[in-house]
Design a protein around this nucleic acid. Sequence first.
DNA 1: CATGAATTATGACCAAGTCTTAGTAGCAGA
DNA 2: TCTGCTACTAAGACTTGGTCATAATTCATG
Lengths: 199, 199
Amino acid sequence: MKPKQKKSKRLERLREVIEDDPFITDRELACVFGVSIQTIRLDRLELGIPESRERTRRLAEEATNKVRSVETGEVIGDLIHVKLGQEGISVLETDKDMAFQRTSIVRGHHIFAQANSLAVALVDAEIALTGTATVKYLRPVKAGERLVAKAEIVSRSGRRHVVKVTTKIGHEDVFTGEFAVFAVDEPDGYGETQGGDLN
Amino acid sequence: MKPKQKKSKRLERLREVIEDDPFITDRELACVFGVSIQTIRLDRLELGIPESRERTRRLAEEATNKVRSVETGEVIGDLIHVKLGQEGISVLETDKDMAFQRTSIVRGHHIFAQANSLAVALVDAEIALTGTATVKYLRPVKAGERLVAKAEIVSRSGRRHVVKVTTKIGHEDVFTGEFAVFAVDEPDGYGETQGGDLN
DNA sequence: CATGAATTATGACCAAGTCTTAGTAGCAGA
DNA sequence: TCTGCTACTAAGACTTGGTCATAATTCATG
């Protein structure tokens, strides 16, 4: 049973090699493993691994989707309820890409981002800038947990809105924050005493 | 000069079409524009646009790099100086992917993330959790600007570290924050009074 | 020795290109 | 009118990185 062992070992390694270099071609793989191209093709067939161009295409699609949804959406998380100028709820499904590999604990800035973008979304203005934020992390969030953020505008004086956000997992509070958000009309002239970053 | 106008218009549109669907083939493009494949190839040559497989490959590479560096790096930004337990400096080059398309203003959570992860990096412990954060955005940051964050541990009592972070563009302050970071030894038993999220 | 699994080889074919050479259509100026 | 230019189209040879089918070879093992 020498060849069988050899083979299954190769299959295993093959999967790994392709995993961390999806661009590699069969020719290169054949060279790496010291077997013929045909063997590599049969192996891929057996493992159900598509050809390199297909792998590349999938990667590109997946990654562009991810970048678009994670980075360029106007709001981090899904807005499931909004009363402009009053309150709102946003849901964020966390995943391992948001977390530290070692601990699977979600990075704080994602939680912050959800809360902050919700706070800004509530303010009824062309442009809204966060001036200050005070936040508290109550317990770590594990990758896979579903974050539900509830926000409420608790006060308003002129352009300054104070928004309180509480983020829960189930019934447990994991994060709270208070954001001072400024509404801005003019494209380049915002608060003189309190500038802020648009979020 | 009718054909010339037609052509330059097509080149322009071609660039756009390929831009928002990089996977499209010459054959499909030929069909879209109602010209021959050869014309499309000549156009691409003129515009210096590579073939679809090449475009796909680049996308995949770029996107995977981006996801890795932006999302899974242990620190957001580049640590250019660290004195563990004392102070540190991190640099973050902002780009349009970090900003709102409409305004080109960098999303606040990126600035927060840089500061927060720097604060956490300074704490000399196996695991460090942010308990609270108070931050102030002093002026909006435009995509392309280079953020330099300086952090300093200003006090420490037991496991609680207070870290002050100031982020500048050139000599101008754009953000300040104060982070309470907790050092944790045991894998699952952290602060009883003050939990926190590992960042 | 025969059998079967694993491997290698071979050849036909495909998609999506490259690069080269050549032909055509339409219009503009000497 | 002829000539030349630009734009477009066509045709052929070659490349990469494969698929698919059909052998042929190797080799351990019953």
